[in-house]
Nucleic acid binder design. Structure first.
Length: 426
RNA sequence: GGGAGCGUAGCUCAGUGGCAGAGCACCGCGCUGUGGCCGCGGUGGUCGCGGGUUCAAAUCCCGUCGCUCCUCCCA
């Protein structure tokens, strides 16, 4: 049997893990600043949750979802996105009963059966927020502000980002809008690509998304969703834009932005990077005022966004390339000389760790010179434990940055943790 | 889903029919108990996998798996 990872599923190795940890910490801190609390739904849900919530005809559900039967034949799915899961949890646990706005965030792996390439894996990671319970357009703007602020904190230059905005109206508006699109595209069907001819029957809004050159003329002259909004939706969109202006958030209106999931209503937006190549979408989101009710809860509006972590890691890696961080991982490396000293060294090593001094030892049977070399790479200090020192009741501490050496009494290892720790300043 | 390129040592890659290589990394020695520089030596490979052509295949052909890029879709 050949052991290798499954296509599209990759290991995040220790080398890369600190970057992920930093990214995760930055995301959590930012979400907390905006009053969001973490929710951790399971990775596996009933497949029906997504076919109903996200939409049976969406690419993500009908082409890309991992679906499998469990031992009882129950149709399960690895989550392709998390909004449906969060809303399911919201309904299932009656979070609405608290009569307040629920501000929830999540972070974790998602699964889509796609062709892998740079910045796109089959198991990938998303972070996102969901604000459930308010129709306030200020909340739409806040969610966009949050997304934008997070990118700033991660050091993405504003000029490198592109915020696209649109409103696709409420369910009622879309009935009329779809009809208008159908009337527009039907006489031009022969100009459209094969995919779009199919979309014309299934979901004409999808045509707006098409990038095929042959479809562009018909798309450019197509009716705009913003011209088919009811009074309430038009007012809402106007308010969102005013709030964005007040927050000095720059955006471009994109009448072809319709997003890939069926649950969106009214505000939809996307943030892309100009510096990422083909997979340039950083995050996307919008309002979904019908989803809670659709999944069995009371009519409750919602707004949120989700972003991909792989792409942020790519951006952060590019940034890191310019600077070098040479802080050693450990405070101390214990280097014993001889078998007798080694026994004592193991004891001292345990004491260091209990005092909060990160420390490790040579386990590979390397020569003293080699052990010192490794210590020089991994740690700030080398603790040399040899027969000569032990005879005096001492060990030697070498500062590997300066080369200075001093002696340390063995009694010091029995002192208070803070005292011992102070002997190894980083 | 469609198109193109690439898989050779842990890493980066050279080798394009004739003994599988270099640099870096790793280990040892010079320097018997002290790292970073230098020098010398060494370990390490089913040449992604399977089949075919050939006296002979890392090299040519077919298939397959994986990665990368474009397209598509998206995060």
């Amino acid at each position: 049997m050949k052991v290798e990872s499954v296509r599209g599923m990759r290991d995040i190795l220790p080398e890369e893990a600190p970057l992920w940890q930093r990214l995760e910490a930055e995301i959590r801190a930012t979400f907390a600043l905006y009053g969001y609390r973490e929710i951790r739904p399971p990775l596996v849900e009933l497949a029906a949750l997504f076919s109903r919530g996200v939409g049976e005809t969406t690419d993500v559900v009908h082409k890309e979802m991992y679906v499998f039967p469990d031992k009882k034949g129950l149709k399960l799915a690895l989550r392709p996105e998390a909004t449906a899961s969060v809303v399911r949890a919201y309904v299932e646990h009656g979070l609405y009963a608290k009569g307040d706005l629920a501000k929830l965030y999540y972070m974790g792996p998602m699964f889509r059966y796609e062709k892998p390439q740079k910045g796109r894996q089959r198991q990938f990671h998303q972070y996102g927020v969901e604000a459930l319970g308010s129709l306030d357009p200020a909340l739409d703007a806040e969610v966009i502000d949050l997304a934008s602020f997070l990118m700033e904190r991660l050091g993405l230059r504003r000029e490198g980002l592109l915020l696209r905005l649109n409103s696709i109206g409420c369910a009622g508006d879309r009935v009329g809008y779809r009809e208008a699109l159908r009337q527009h595209f039907l006489p031009r069907a022969s100009e459209l690509c094969a995919d779009c001819q199919r979309r014309l029957a299934e979901n004409p809004m999808r045509i707006l998304d098409c990038k095929q050159p042959q479809c562009q003329p018909a798309i450019r002259s197509a009716p705009k969703s913003v011209d088919h909004l009811c009074d309430a939706c038009r007012h809402h969109f106007q308010q969102v834009r005013e709030h964005l202006d007040a927050l000095a958030l720059r955006y471009g209106l994109d009448h072809t932005l319709v997003r890939g999931f069926d649950y969106y209503t009214r505000t939809v937006f996307e943030l892309a990077s100009r510096e990422l190549g083909a997979q340039d979408a950083l995050l996307g989101g919008g309002r979904y005022d019908d989803l809670v009710e659709l999944l069995g809860g009371p009519a409750t509006p919602g707004v949120g966004f989700a972003g991909g972590m792989e792409r942020l890691v790519l951006v952060l890696q590019a940034q890191r390339g310019e600077q070098t961080d040479e802080t050693p991982e450990l405070a101390c490396c214990v280097v014993p000389i001889g078998d007798e000293a080694r026994k004592k060294a193991i004891e001292l090593l345990a004491r260091l760790r209990r005092a909060g001094v990160s420390a490790d030892m040579e386990y590979m049977g390397r020569s003293l010179r080699k052990a010192m070399q490794v210590a020089g790479r991994r740690a700030r200090y080398a603790l040399i434990v040899g027969p000569e020192e032990l005879e005096q009741g001492q060990v030697k501490v070498k500062d590997l940055a300066t080369g200075e050496q001093r002696l340390l009494e063995l009694q010091e290892f029995s002192a208070a943790p803070e005292a011992l720790r102070s002997r190894f300043p980083r």
